[in-house]
Design a protein around this nucleic acid. Sequence first.
DNA 1: GCTGCAATTTGCGCTCCGACAAAGAGCCCT
DNA 2: AGGGCTCTTTGTCGGAGCGCAAATTGCAGC
Lengths: 240, 240
Amino acid sequence: MAAVDRSLVANLAMFAGLSPAEQDELLREARSVRYPKGTAVFNQGTEAERFFVLLHGHLRVEKTTPQGQQMVVRYVSAGELFGVAQAMNLKSYPATAVAAVDSIALSWPSSSWHRLIVTFPTLAVSALQTVGSRLQDTQARVIEISNEQVEQRVAHALLRLAKQAGRKVDAGVEIDFPISRQDVAEMTGTTLHTVSRILSAWEQQGLVEGGRQRIVLRDPHKLHILAEGNEADQVRGSAP
Amino acid sequence: MAAVDRSLVANLAMFAGLSPAEQDELLREARSVRYPKGTAVFNQGTEAERFFVLLHGHLRVEKTTPQGQQMVVRYVSAGELFGVAQAMNLKSYPATAVAAVDSIALSWPSSSWHRLIVTFPTLAVSALQTVGSRLQDTQARVIEISNEQVEQRVAHALLRLAKQAGRKVDAGVEIDFPISRQDVAEMTGTTLHTVSRILSAWEQQGLVEGGRQRIVLRDPHKLHILAEGNEADQVRGSAP
DNA sequence: GCTGCAATTTGCGCTCCGACAAAGAGCCCT
DNA sequence: AGGGCTCTTTGTCGGAGCGCAAATTGCAGC
C-alpha cells in the first residue's frame, strides 16, 4: 500500500472543487490497491466495508441471481466512484466487481462516509450524480430490453462500450478490454449464440470485426442507425 | 399555497434526525400543492425546477421513448422524495409523474438544493438512499425482464404493488389505486393482452380478483411461488 | 335509460430467439 | 508439437408471447 500522490487524483470529478489541502486530507485515509486482470475488487453479498474510485483500468460489474443467472450490470472506467453500497444504505455489495484488465483503485473505509460528506459536501454531490446517472442508464436498459429486438440491443451495447472505452485503431474503434460474446449477451439479456450470430452477420457486412474476446466497430454510424431501429430494415435490405 | 405544519412531516425519513428548529427552517421554503387524480406533477423533458416529497397519495412515474413507447417506471408512495433531477445533474425531469389518486406534495426550488445539503447533510443522505434504492429496484427489473417469463414478471409486479400500496380487504390485499392491464403491461415489458390473459387465468384459479382498473391479490402466497419460478409448473399442474 | 367510449377479454397466426447439439478455432501449458 | 480447455460458430426445432382483429363489458355523461 503506497502513499497516494495528489497529482493522481486532481482531475477526478470527486476531487474537483477541493483545495489542495482538502484533497490531501481526503487522501489521508485512502488506500491504493492494484487488481490484476480477472481478480475481484469486491464480491456480491460481502459486507460493504469500503468505497472506491477507479484510478486506472476497467471493471466489469456483474450480478448473480438466486437462480444462478448472471448479468453484466455495467463497466466502470477510470475516474469513476464505485462500491458506494453503504452510502445507499446497503449492508453488503449488491454485485461483484472484477478487473477486466489490470486496474488500480483508491478505497476508503465505508465507516468514514458520513463524516466525510459533512466535511466535504462535494463528495455527496459527486456520489449522487454518479448513482443518479447509473439509475438513468439502468432505466434505459429496462426500456431497451422491453421494447427492442436483440439486434438493436446489441448495437446499443456496443456503441455504449465504444463511447466509454473505445480506442481508435486503423479499422475503426476497438473496445479497449477483452469482451466475450457471453459478456455482450449478459449485458443485453440474450444468449451468447444469438450474439455470435449477430456479430457474424455484421462481420460479413463489414460493420464489425474482431475475434475471440475482441470487438472492433468498423462502422459506428451504421450501428447507430441499427440501434435506433426503423431504418434497420433498409440496412438489412442492402445486404446480399 | 398553505404554510406547512411541522407535524405533517415529522415522521418522514427526510426530516428524521433534524431538530424542530431545523425542520421549521427546511419547511420555510417548502410549498404544498394538491394534485387531483390524473394531473401531472411534472412532465418528462421540462426543466427540473423543483424537487418534491409526497405527503399523501400515490404517483405513477412514466417514461415515453423517442419512438413513442411508454413504460411505467415506478409508483411513488407517501413519504418518498422524488423529482430530484437537478441533484442528479439533470437539467430536465427524465420522466412524467402523474397522480394515480388525489395527492399532496411538498416542493422546494431545485436552486436551493446545494445550499440545503450543506446546511442539512441528512438531506443528501436521504436522497442518496432513495436514489440508490431505486437503482437496485431498477436493476432487479432488468434482471426480471431478461430472465423471467411474463407470468413471473406479472406476479412480481403485483406483489411489489401489494407491498407498497396494498390495503387489506375481505378477499385479500387490494392495490390501493386504480391500475389497468395496460399499466401492469408497461411495468413488466409486455402487452395489455398478455396481462389480461394471465389475470383471467389467475381469476379462474382464485389467485386474484378484480375488474376494471382494480386488482385484489387473493392468494399472495401462491403468487409468490409463481414469481419465484421453478415450482410454477406444480401450481399449474393442480389447476383443472 | 341510452349512448359512446375506453378498458377488458378472447381467438389466431406468425416470428423471434432460446435451447440443445455439434463442430471449429484459438490459446495456454507441458 | 500436442493436448486440453474455453470461446465461437452454426444447424435445427419448438414455444412464448406479440400483434392484429373482433367481441364483450363497465362506466360516465346526458
